[in-house]
Computed example of a mutant assay.
Amino acid sequence: MSFQYLKTAEIGAVGVVTLDRASKRNAIDEATLAEIEEYFSSVPDHIKAILLKAEGEHFCAGLDLKEHFDKKRTPVEFMRVCQGWHRAFDKIQFGGIPVIACLQGAVVGGGLELASAAHVRVADVSTYFALPEGTRGIFTGGGATVRTARIVSAPRMVEMMLTGRIVDVHEGHRLGLAHHVCDPARGDMPAAEFALELAQKIAGNAPLSNYAMVTSISRIADMSTTDGLFAEGLMIAVVQSGDEVQQRVGEFVAKKAAKVKPDSGAGLAPQRLPG
């Protein structure tokens, strides 16, 4: 695929998607949104995880307000724009492939909505978060009331929007906006390097298990307890029929698989791994 505002690449089974409007702080206009939707609508079968990152100092400053100002959209026109954001970001969240976002600098407005659609978020220490819609006289339109509010809670999101305050990377980590923070000053791996390692590790999981995790858990959270438990049972029944189940469980039974314990090395931390 050839794009104007995205760069795409492949590193083994990991697809790499890079926002490429650094001069605009990677703000999202209609053309960029269309490219995001196009990529996530037709991910090649051999790609098992996706690393989403950005050129320049900032991940994404949100909606391209200049385009919005110049177009003077009617309410109906902007409703259609919002539906385009929802459709594109749904394909990130529910497309069946784990998406790992690497964040730096501004993750603001629509940029936070984009990051909230990813399944794992790795933040450079320079990262900061904000929802400045209140100060701009607008409202969220890319899914923050659903995705971001479920991460930080609705009352916290209301406060962020009313005040427009900056949430630094450490508070963002506590709130769940970032799962990992990489600070090279304390010996951590660079965020892009760590995010790629995570993506490669996740790509090594059983594909059907990954699919189940990224498509079902958020949906089950929307259900009643009874419906959620039933859906969970259906999903594990499907996953258990996967070709890799017997092989992977067999390795564990034969004591060939690593046990889960703090010093097993099975997980990753932002610090550089030995070797």
Rank of each mutant, 00 (worst) to 15 (best):
P274K: 12
F94G: 11
I28F: 00
L65I: 06
N205I: 11
G141M: 10
R186T: 13
I47H: 08
L51G: 03
G142P: 12
V107Y: 00
G12L: 11
T32P: 02
T145D: 09
Q4V: 06
K259H: 10
D29Y: 09
L52Q: 00
P270K: 10
H180F: 15
T127R: 09
G228M: 14
I36R: 00
K256I: 04
A118R: 00
I92L: 13
A27T: 06
K48G: 01
I11V: 15
M79R: 12
L6K: 09
A88F: 05
T215C: 12
G110K: 02
K91M: 08
R25T: 07
D227R: 07
V260R: 15
R121I: 06
Q83C: 08
V260T: 13
R80W: 08
V167A: 02
A178K: 00
S216R: 14
C82S: 15
H119S: 07
M79K: 11
L162I: 10
G110H: 04
I97F: 01
A117M: 05
E38W: 00
D64T: 03
R25F: 03
L51H: 01
V239Q: 08
R156A: 12
A149R: 06
G109Y: 00
A258G: 08
A269G: 13
L175E: 07
R121E: 01
D29L: 02
A195N: 07
V245I: 15
G105P: 05
S23Y: 10
E37N: 14
E77K: 05
A144E: 04
G141Y: 06
E159Q: 15
R186E: 11
S241T: 10
H68S: 07
D45V: 09
I92S: 01
G84I: 02
K53A: 09
E55V: 08
P262K: 09
I217V: 13
E251A: 13
A22Q: 15
M235W: 02
V238G: 11
V43R: 04
F40W: 12
G96Y: 07
G142F: 02
M1L: 12
G62E: 02
H68R: 03
K71F: 01
I220L: 05
R165V: 04
G110C: 01
S218C: 04
G265Q: 06
A178P: 04
Q200I: 14
V122I: 14
F89D: 03
L65S: 07
C182W: 03
V120Y: 02
S209C: 06
V169N: 03
T145V: 10
H68D: 05
M1F: 06
E35I: 04
Q104D: 00
